[in-house]
Computed example of a mutant assay.
Amino acid sequence: MSDSAAFKAEIEAKLAAGERLTFEDGVGLYEIDDLAWLGRLAHQVRIDKNGDRTMFNVNRHLNLTNVCSASCSYCSFQRKPGEADAYTMRVEQAVALAEQMKDDAPTELHIVNGLHPTLPWRYYPRVLSALKETLPQVNLKAFTATEIQWFEKISGLGLDRILDELIESGLASLTGGGAEIFDWEIRQHIVDHDCHWEEWSGIHRAAHNKGLRTPATMLYGHIEDPKHRVDHVLRLRELQDETGGFSVFIPLRYQHDFHDSQDGKIRNRLQPRTTMASPAESLRVFAVSRLLLDNFDHVKCFWVMHGLDVAQLAQSFGADDLDGSVVEYKITHDADNYGTPDKMSREDLLELIRDAGFQPVERNTHYEIMREYDPPESLAERRARPQSVQF
């Protein structure tokens, strides 16, 4: 038996026995040259946990400001004070945008911002309260751990006080951003702020202890190696063992090829050192993550960063959630020319999921089921037809 065949047999035996995979197993899964086999294993885990259902929600994104004190090397969203397209919304402007969202009947508003150097701390709970008053039925999923740490810095308040005030103002969940890659070997080259693994995990631990369930993310496809990805997800797995507070894991594909239509300035300083993960590599990330994260209920494919073809295929490589309707996700759309649409309607998402051979299920931020839709007429027939994808 070849080394590859022996490794595959060992992994299959571990999964059949319910045995947890190790760091070495994870690295080996990235090295194995059999994507179909890997997808088949991950798909079985996905089916065991969630059946043929693929979740989505009707959500909107709102970025209150793109002004940021940090200059992370991969980020083309951030602007410095005084730049032509730098902006900061007044509370009244954010409310006016929320008013325009009512007709779409979203269940979630996703809010992520730059680390603004002069906005006062009180602005943030005030804007949450105003948005919640405008959209009382909408869950406010807001702020990365990096932003929470920034709020501690600019307010002088402790973490517990910050979280309590935000929850009182309507916060339903943190976002999972700011995680990027936790290993310092890579992290020191990609981020320009002080929120690292110890701080990121401590903030999410505190949020979980207050009853919030939060997402977790990983930015992949830049200068990291597979071992850094495995280390990243195993840290999350260990924290999930402790708190049980993560609702979903979201691999985020680093965006390399882009133009900034506003000023033509290239802000991504990693660009000379990177390309971008191929669709095949993205599917591998989903599959390996699904196999390693045995204590996570859900794995999400954020279609904006992966493209619609990969989003369909990812559902057969471990992913059981496609995020939502989104609308104007500036952090990615300011960074790429990849061609994903600004918005997917509920009907678009239903078609995307059914066309891949899965049953659409609409959820809210807390992964509570809002509505189950009819599945495709024949899952077996749909899966028998090849799907095209640009590799």
Rank of each mutant, 00 (worst) to 15 (best):
E242R: 08
H110A: 03
S155T: 04
R90P: 07
P125M: 08
K343V: 14
G177M: 01
A105T: 11
N63E: 12
F358P: 00
H232G: 01
Q78A: 06
S378R: 13
L166F: 13
I148H: 08
H61T: 12
R382I: 15
Q390N: 14
V138S: 01
P106S: 07
E108Q: 15
D194M: 07
E347H: 11
G26R: 03
R253K: 15
F246S: 06
T22D: 14
E99W: 04
L171A: 01
A216H: 05
E328H: 07
R253T: 11
S76W: 03
E10Y: 04
S4Y: 07
L159V: 06
L293W: 02
V58S: 02
S73Y: 06
F143N: 00
V91L: 14
V127P: 03
Y254D: 08
T332A: 13
N295D: 13
A36F: 06
L140P: 00
G177E: 07
E24T: 13
Q100K: 12
A207N: 03
K265E: 14
H189T: 07
S282D: 09
R213I: 11
E347V: 13
L119D: 00
H232E: 04
T217Q: 06
L234R: 08
N295F: 02
V248Y: 10
E242Q: 09
A9P: 01
E24I: 10
E238G: 09
E368M: 10
D320R: 07
N57E: 12
D294A: 11
A277V: 12
R363Q: 13
R237Y: 04
D85I: 13
D103H: 09
M1P: 09
R253L: 05
D321N: 13
A311G: 02
P360H: 07
C195Y: 05
P279N: 04
L140V: 10
P375I: 05
H259A: 13
Q255E: 14
F258T: 12
L171W: 06
W121N: 04
W150Q: 06
H208I: 06
V310Y: 05
I162T: 00
I331N: 08
A311E: 01
E377A: 10
M370A: 11
M370K: 15
A94M: 11
R346W: 12
Q315G: 10
L379N: 01
V112T: 03
I167F: 01
F246L: 14
D323I: 08
H193P: 06
E381D: 15
I223G: 00
S388C: 07
E12L: 03
H222P: 02
L349W: 03
A105E: 15
D183I: 04
R385D: 10
H333Q: 12
A94L: 03
D85C: 14
D183V: 08
D355E: 14
L292G: 06
K8Q: 14
A216W: 06
L349Y: 00
Y373N: 12
D3V: 09
P117F: 13
V112E: 03
V361I: 12
A216D: 00
W121E: 09
N139P: 03
W37A: 04
F23Y: 14
